[in-house]
């Protein structure tokens, strides 16, 4: 069993393996998360990246900003590509090496879902990371199956009418040894989860809430505050699932109404008519309440 309180796991790492000079927007949650992940994983890591914002802002020829090996091919196949890297390392008797397959919610929840399920089921030694910014941001803020109820995107102009797909639970139900969620405001927790995952042999899934100022309609300086509110409202539960058992659930210290979270973001502006919340806000509160009950937040 992994000692989650050990000094090594809890140290915040700063190695600049995902170096400055990339082209993300100011306040980008995904860029911050990718840096934390790379620094936590360390030099002995291969980053497989799906097409999307991360790939675009970090890997233009001839000046990518990665200081670890980077491999990109397509949008929907990053988990299968990482499976291939894993198979090659086994076959060539090389390694051990950390293999991280990463992408946004579009490549994870939608178009790459089958490939991820296959990688989990086959049991590859790969850490799958989803940088969840709740829509297709790279193509201009279109709805994904991680877009929350009520959120406006360019393809849900009246607000999204469906609820978010619950991938952490779906991942855990594949019987994989480690699943966790995290947010980009808590460096220590996020990096501890990356390090914990990489100590485990087999498929792992880490789901990181990564606000997108452009798509969510908030200023770049609010990325951290919004993450904290996502947790304090119960809209984004933070937990680990180790060998199928939900554990280390982050308790809410001071519960906040969802309204506080929603009012900071342009994508929810239509839910307040002249400042008064419409009915959908109550449904979003209900989603938060259900999370609080389900995960005992």
């Amino acid at each position: 069993m992994i000692n989650v309180n050990s000094e090594d796991l809890n140290r915040v790492e700063k190695k600049d393996l995902f170096a400055s000079g990339h082209r993300a927007c100011g306040g980008c949650g995904q860029a911050l998360a990718a840096r934390l992940v790379a620094d936590a994983a360390g030099e002995n890591t291969i980053a497989c990246v799906a097409t999307g914002c991360l790939e675009i802002f970090s890997s233009p020829y001839p000046d990518p900003n990665w200081r670890i090996p980077f491999l990109h091919s397509l949008f929907e196949n990053v988990s299968a590509v990482a499976s291939g890297v894993d198979a090659a390392y086994k076959a060539l008797k090389k390694g051990p090496v950390n293999i991280i397959a990463q992408g946004g919610d579009g490549s994870t929840a939608d178009i790459g879902f089958q490939s991820i399920s296959g990688m989990f089921e086959r049991g590859h030694n790969v850490l799958q990371i989803c940088y969840d910014n709740e829509a297709y941001m790279n193509t201009g803020v279109q709805r994904s199956s991680f877009t929350p109820f009520g959120a406006k995107t360019t393809t849900t102009p009246m607000g999204n009418t469906t609820r978010k797909k619950n991938l952490p639970i779906i991942a855990a139900d594949h019987g994989i040894p480690y699943v966790a969620t995290a947010t980009v405001d808590d460096f220590r927790d996020l990096q501890r989860k990356v390090k914990t995952a990489l100590l485990i042999n087999g498929p792992k899934y880490l789901h990181i809430l990564a606000p997108c100022p452009l798509g969510w309609g908030h200023t770049g300086d609010l990325t951290v505050a919004i993450c904290r509110l996502a947790k304090a409202t119960g809209l984004f539960p933070v937990f680990e699932i180790i060998n199928g058992k939900v554990t280390n659930v982050q308790k809410i210290q001071e519960k906040k109404p969802v309204e506080e979270y929603l009012r900071l973001q342009g994508r929810y502006k239509h839910l307040f008519k002249k400042g008064v919340p419409v009915k959908a806000v109550a449904e979003i509160q209900e989603i938060a309440n259900q999370n609080i009950e389900r995960f005992n937040l």
């Binding site: 196949n77 299968a80 090659a88 086994k90 296959g118």
Partner: peptide, 28 residues
């Protein structure tokens, strides 16, 4: 035959697995 044989869930993934393996230095 000393090789890794990867049973995949689609041809799309079969091609992607050999892509990843080849990029990692394997004869695929």
């Amino acid at each position: 035959l000393d090789a890794e044989f990867i049973n995949v869930e689609s041809e799309f993934s079969a091609a992607s697995v050999v892509l990843g393996a080849s990029a990692a230095g394997a004869r695929a």
